[in-house]
Structures are given as C-alpha cells and as structure tokens.
Design a protein around this nucleic acid. Structure first.
Lengths: 227, 227
DNA sequence: GGCCGGATTATGTCTAGACATAATATCAGG
DNA sequence: CCTGATATTATGTCTAGACATAATCCGGCC
C-alpha cells in the first residue's frame, strides 16, 4: 500500500466512523506531512483524490473540510446484452427483423441513416427488442454490414469510438406489436432504455431497447473513495 | 489555463477528432515533456486524469493508449425528489401515510428499524410512492422525527452521511393499492427504484420508490474527460 | 465605527530529480 | 525450436523544494 493510499484510507475511515463529521476541518496538509513523514505533494495528491470523489472539500487558506452528503450519484453499468445473458448462463441469440435505409425518424440521427431492428433472445425466450438508427455519415461501413449474425451494438463497439452518450430510462407499457414480439401480454410493464451516442459532436447512433420488466433490471453501485 | 489542462485538452481534442483512434499509442511521457517543456510530473498528472476518466489506458513499458470505448458506463444522478419537481416549476408536497416501528421487513435493515411510507406530489398530483426503512441503530435521531412536513430522504440527506449505495431499477406494474395511491389504473407501468445505503459497512436505510411511468424518467450522461 | 491595504497562511501548481515496478525484447543455452 | 535469465524501458510513486493564488486577519486611516 502506497503512502498516498494509506493517507486516503485513514481519512476515509475516520469520516466513515463518524470521527470527523460533515463540516469538520481535517488536519492541514502540513500537519499530515508531519504525521506521515512524507512530502506535501503526496498529501496533496491524496486530498485531491478525496476531493474529486466528493468526500472532502478544500478551501484555500481555510483548510480541508468533510463534505456534506450530496445528491446520490452512482455509476450505471449497462453491459452488452450478450454479456448479461451469458452471465446468467443462458444461451444468447440475436434475430434481425428489419434493416432498411431511413431518414433517421424522430431521433437526432440525420439522414442518411440505417435502421436496424431485431430481438435479443436469452435462454430461448425473447429478452429485449431493439430499434437502432446508425448515421451512415458517421459510420459508412455500417452500410456494408448485414447485422444478421451479430447485433449492431456489438458490432459498433468494435468499429466505432464514441465520445459522449446520453441514456434515458423509463417504464412503459408494451404495445400490441411489441408484446407479441416479446411474448408477453399487451400493456405489460417494460423497461425502456434509450441511448444516443456522439463522436466529436456528431450523433453516431440512437438505440431504443425495450426489456421485459420481469426479466431485466439495472443495478448501479456507488462506492466512495473514487479509486 | 494550467499546463496540465492544456496537455489534457490537447489529447482529448486529438482523440475526439479521430486523429488518434482506439488502440493507438499516444506519445510517451518523455516526448510530451519535450513538447510542452514541462516536467514529467505534470505530464503524468494529466495522463493520470485522462486514464481515470477512461479515455486512455496506460501500460508500463508499453506507453499510453487510446482506450476502447465502454459505451455502457454512465453517471447516474438520483436527485432528491423535491429538486426534480422544483426543476419542473411544479409545487412539491410530501404526504406521510404511515410511520411505525418495524423489524426491517425483507430488507437488509436490521431491527430496530423505523418504517416510513408516504406519497410525493408534484403539481398537485401524485408523483411517486415511497416506502423506507431506517435503521434506528445507525440513525437514532430518526426515532424523534415525525416526517410529517419533510420527506425522510430530504431529512436523511441533512443528518446522515452515506458512504456506499446500491441502486436497482426495474419496470413493474402497479398493484391495486399502489395504483389507487398514484391515481392511475391498476397494472400501469411504473419505474421502481430501490436503494440501500450504507455507512461504514452498516446498512443505514433502504428505500423503494415507485414512480408513475408517465411522469418520470431517469437520465444518465456520460461525457469523457471526466473533470 | 467603517473601509482599505498589507501581512499571513493554506492550498494550487509546478520543477528536477530519484528509485521502484512491471512488461517487453534480447540473447544464450539446452 | 523453445526456455529462461538479463537488460531495457515506460510508467508509478515519491521527495524537497519553489512560486502563485485566494481568503482571511489585523492594523491604521478617514
């Protein structure tokens, strides 16, 4: 364990134990330098990391303070569907239902665009529907890809880099057609995940995935310390 | 703009422009030292920040490389409900429906626990149901609080600091009782958010919030470059 | 009393080096 | 050809200083 890690972990422990409460001032950098017998750069790096993770707040001249608890923020992991299903030990399959040129529909993807629709199966049963628009201006190679054997998400991961993404998560009721495709009753509660992905400010792809509510849930974790 | 920021921003720009593609090696630290005429510590700090934000990957002996995109990781913000509604310009109100000692139910909260149930209103209409368990061992002050005028989430934010949390998000159908409370038809699709919060390894509170699917969605953003 | 300017002080950023560590490349020997 | 020891190299961590910056305190002046 490095000196920096030791300083960080000691401070975290004290805060988590309630030893130092929100608003309290923690020791000055020069005091920690003496305590740990290290240089100020090391102490400063530890405090910078803690500050970035939101555990403390630093104020010039005043010192560093235990931060007041904040709004919940967590890292949301949305793994590739094939991975989710593999993790459950079920067989994964992608079935393409439509592939056509499209103007981009009501998404942010501008024409020329490719529309790809299909179903993700897990353990032989439908798991999620997918409707995706891919900007052919941003990803010309997509025009030469069939997307029959591989889901477009998986393919895109390998072929395109992104620089920003926005996710939107909602609960919706399956329409009649969607319910049929998912093999559930119409108006069953489903989780809808929409994601738009950009590269260099240009929208690359927009995807809407509709999950069976009974077969999928998202888990997000927050662990402090940044690390 | 500091030297570190300049280095970071230059590298980000090159990656976003597609100048350097995933898997490409970016210049060695000692080369950047020459380019920018600064010390290696400064270059290293810039690269460390970029690596933490996931934009690059560093390998000893080999150098630093543009990371392959991980599209499916995003920061999820779960703000206080009063804030969400205030942000929409609607009036917020909390209505307590139940407050009782409880054994913790099927949650991870151990007895003695306090069970608090209520409804969040936005713009005069029900917005979300909440059922919360609070560990009285972890938060004894909660036993003296009525939670009539203030939602327990808001109160807890002010009184307790949390150190870890796990969120679970699902689409569910409202039961008859839930539908009545939310003023929707039974079996309407709702977004269920469950959150368990820990402090120093001890569960502090567990909350289940049920949102009207038509009035709420979660948005998660991912922007590279961290910061 | 109230306002302004300087002294003080803690953090912010940086330098020029050092040694440690891990992964690769190279080469000798089986 | 394959294996293992050795040298090389880039990053990881750290030191002991330096100057900059911002916030505060304090004294003196109006």
């Amino acid at each position: 364990m490095t000196v920096e890690e030791r300083i960080r972990s000691d401070i975290e422990t004290r805060i988590h134990a309630g030893d130092w409460r929100p608003g309290d001032r923690i020791p000055f950098e020069h005091e920690l330098v003496v305590t740990y017998g290290c240089s100020r750069a090391t102490v400063s790096k530890a405090l910078t990391t803690l500050a970035r993770s939101g555990l403390i707040e630093r104020r010039r001249k005043a010192g560093s303070f235990v931060a007041h608890p904040q709004v919940h923020s967590a890292v949301l992991e949305v793994p590739d569907l094939a991975e989710i299903i593999a993790a459950r030990g079920e067989a994964y399959r992608w079935a393409l239902t439509r592939r056509a040129a499209d103007a981009g529909g009501d998404t942010e993807i501008a024409a020329p665009a490719l529309r790809v629709e299909g179903v993700h199966f897990g353990g032989g049963a439908p798991f999620a529907l997918e409707r995706r628009m891919i900007s052919l201006a941003a990803v010309p190679e997509a025009g030469d890809t069939a997307f029959v054997d591989e889901a477009p998400g998986t393919w895109l991961l390998r072929h395109v880099s992104w620089t920003a993404a926005r996710h939107r998560i909602r609960a919706v009721e399956a329409s009649r057609a969607e319910a049929t495709a998912l093999e559930v009753r119409p108006r069953t509660a489903c989780l809808e995940l929409e994601r738009t992905t950009w590269r260099a400010g240009q929208p690359v792809t927009h995807v809407r995935q509709l999950f069976r509510g009974d077969r999928y849930d998202l888990v997000a974790e927050f662990k402090p310390g940044g690390s």
